[in-house]
Amino acid sequence: MFQFLLRRLLYMIPTLIAISIVAFVIIQLPPGDFLTTMVASMAAQGEDVDQTALQALKDQYGLGQPVHIQYLKWMQGIILRGDFGDSFGWNKAVSDLVWSRLALTFVLSLASLLFVWVVAFPIGIYSAVKQYSVGDYVATFFGFLGLAIPNFLLALILMYIAFRYFNQSVGGLFSPEYQEAPWTWGKVADLFAHLWVPVVIIGTAGTASLIRIMRANLLDELRKPYVVTARAKGLPEWRLLFKYPVRVALNPFVSTVGWVLPTLVSGAAIVSIVLSLPTTGPLLIRALQQQDMYLAASFIMLLSILTVIGTLVSDLLLAWLDPRIRME
């Protein structure tokens, strides 16, 4: 098990490097470098450009030097000083902006993941065991529907309904009185009271596909000979179901975290924009629109790292559940 963990951690290193390179490429993609843009806009506003400060920035980011040097300098800042560069849109260090937002994104994604699992697991089992029953058809129908509605649309519709018929706003993660308040238990409770709306919205598509996966897996397992063996031993159907096929089908279910998590994080980004939640989404899109590239790229990088870590956790969970993987 320990070896397994070690190997997984080693596997992560190239992934993390690749992620940082992709993020850096995104920084580099817009034509021109940000300093030129900044100088131009400062000049346009009639501000003086401090040449020494400018030079300091140039040195810090390695501008004018080859691309790989710039990359290494950026990475060096991150690893040694936790410095992701500066956001020019906010005139702040990126690191001052990202963490609280990232934490809320994390909470939101995790809550959505739990929601997806808790809902999809029993429904998937039911659908498989009662294949072609009315309940199965209903689940399948809602599953398809959940897959087909883009979650921003769902968010819009819910907002419209809440606004139109209940005269309420469903946006945000906090009530106004807690918006700027420091963290207290009251604030946490308030967060959870608000959390369910985006969680349900973000979770629909994932729930729909996980129901289908659970159903298909379980149907597969139900056909396996070991089920017949267990039945031939005289086990009651329900005990048999949960001890063997459900338990075996659980493994691929758990391993879906690998791709469910990225889609949830994606969903969280876009739903947050619609519902204006204080997570990474709204800030990311603003950064992209303003070509505030260090901020944008840092977000993309950190979100990706978040999912990679999530996947690692699910791998470990899977190894703990499945002896075949643990011992491979």
Binding site: K224, P225, Y226, V228, T229, A230, R231, A232, K233, G234, L235, K243, Y244, R247, V248, N251, L321, D322, P323, R324
Partner: peptide
Amino acid sequence: RGQDISMIFQEPMTSLSPIH
């Protein structure tokens, strides 16, 4: 089943649960 009459199958590979 399993007490008075029991059965063994062709595929010893798949007739046993892989994770128990």
